[in-house]
Amino acid sequence: MIALLLRDLRLAIRAGGGFGLGLAFFLIVVVLVPFAVGPEAGLLSSIAPGILWLGALLACLLSLDRIFALDWEDGSLDLLAVSPLPMEAVVSVKALAHWLTTGVPLVLATPLIAVLLNLPGEGFRSLILSLALGTPALSVIGTFGAALTVGIKRGGLLLSLLVLPLYVPTLIFGAEVARRGLSGQDTSTPLLLLAGITCGAIALLPFASAAVLRVNLR
């Protein structure tokens, strides 16, 4: 399992792996927002948590189809299926690798990018906390979507259509935490619910993803 994780990370970092692409996309989305809504600092700072969450979600979505597509094309997925690794482990490791290469950089970059949107100082803590807790769920749910569409040619659009509705609860609770943190309210309830979704998704979804992947490999 560790070998698979290391291989995926190595592939992501080497040329053509698309590492950093999501990060650049995140930056661009956030930069475009002031052009669309105007440069007024008060407005920007009040919508900043939502924009940053939406940007992170879209950046995550962008890299989902790479999770399985490359391994599918070169036959590695077939070989992994007959290897000693259970499919559930393969799926979980893939989700973890996706989170490490997409989610973690996003969380780390958020404080810098939040400055662009005039996010007040008191909003930082809860925003970063909510992203750190929420992005694993995004990766795991996205892995399920990627497993569903792996056999479909040009399935990228379908992948978005399938995954985005599944992202709704995570987005709602995550952005709620960030918003409440910004306005100085108590964040513990949405934070716990967000953590609950993340834990539930990590615990249960790999089974669904593995089942779906086995169907697709037939």
Partner: peptide, 30 residues
Amino acid sequence: PDDLAYVGHADGIKSTLSVTENLTFWAQVF
């Protein structure tokens, strides 16, 4: 099922990894 190995039409080779890295990965998996 724990005693078979399969080679299909595709080799499952990662082009950005070296020959050693490719083989070492599969050795570790098994």
